[in-house]
Design a protein around this nucleic acid. Structure first.
Length: 273
DNA sequence: CCTAAGTCCTGAGTGC
DNA sequence: TGCACTCAGGACTTAG
């Protein structure tokens, strides 16, 4: 499901319903199906007796801060967390809590990733050390810095936007949307963007991510927040999934094409090469 | 048959 | 030739 707004929405939803500093993990159960990345199952024993202190979002990762450990969760394409009242198909992790509730991870495609990190050095996890600038949290997400980072990159700007090594949180939906708002063609070489265009793009990325967070993310196929509700931002999409429809502003037909294997959408009139 | 919100791995290619 | 790096494509998987 998740790009930055969806992960942020899940974080906020869980944070509202978990009583931090009081709720203790009683037990953890796994299904027999493997997830894409999962730590040694013996580490799960370490979680029992630990209180949930805080949930943090870092890039597209959720980090459950416990007393001595950090439970890292990446939702992949179809992962979701909920306080379960029932057993559903594709439930893979059940965290039994001291208040009687069951924090449950469901993931049909099982692209999700987990790790259990020591609270003393969790930031050194290989999954977290190679992350780029966060458009929502980092004041360094600035045109001057991005111009420098991409000055030699001939990769299409849409691909660079989605490369978590440089910019985190932007995935396939919001990349197309942000480039449309900025009036930049997705196939433009990253190094060709002028400083003014980087400023426009940064403003567009931040706008679309904040707007999507405000509306609880985008539901295209299956995304649900931790209360089982759909997002509301998909109704504000201008280009994603709109191929063949007229551009809202110029009425020219929205085009689409796979760029490095990901379907991409744009208006060739509003977004010139 | 096709497609889907993400990331990791491999192998080919480039430049020094 | 070797090394470091970049990049494209495939793989993982289930549902509609």
């Amino acid at each position: 499901m998740p790009e930055l707004p969806e992960v942020e929405t899940v974080k906020r939803g869980l944070s509202r319903v978990i009583d931090f500093n009081s709720t203790t993990i009683v037990n953890v159960e796994l299904s027999d199906k493997p997830l894409r990345v999962f730590p040694d199952k013996k580490l799960l024993l370490k979680l029992s007796g630990q209180k949930i202190r805080l949930i943090v979002r870092k890039a597209k990762y959720l980090l459950f801060h416990l007393d001595d450990w950090v439970l890292l969760s990446h939702l992949g394409m179809t992962g979701s967390w909920r306080m379960a009242k029932d057993q559903q198909k594709h439930d893979h992790i059940k965290i039994y809590l001291s208040d009687g509730r069951v924090l449950t991870y469901q993931d049909p495609r099982r692209f999700g990733m987990f790790d259990i990190l020591n609270i003393k050095n969790w930031e050194e996890s290989p999954m977290l050390t190679k992350l780029g600038l966060d458009p929502v949290l980092d004041s360094t997400f600035r045109a001057e810095n991005l111009l420098q980072i991409f000055k030699k990159s001939h990769v299409p700007i849409k691909v660079s936007l989605m490369n978590q090594k440089y910019i985190v949180g932007v995935g396939n939906i919001y990349a197309s949307e942000a480039l449309y708002l900025a009036g930049i063609h997705p196939l433009r070489a990253s190094c060709s963007l002028l400083i003014e265009e980087w400023r426009l793009l940064i403003e567009a990325v931040r706008h679309v991510l904040f707007e999507a967070i405000f509306l609880g993310g985008s539901t295209i196929q299956s995304y649900k927040n931790s209360s089982g509700e759909s997002g509301g931002h998909q109704s504000l999409h201008f280009v994603y999934g709109k191929s063949g429809l007229p551009c809202v502003y110029c009425k020219k037909t929205i085009e689409n094409q796979a760029i490095v294997g990901r379907n991409s959408f744009w208006c060739s009139s509003c977004q010139e090469m």
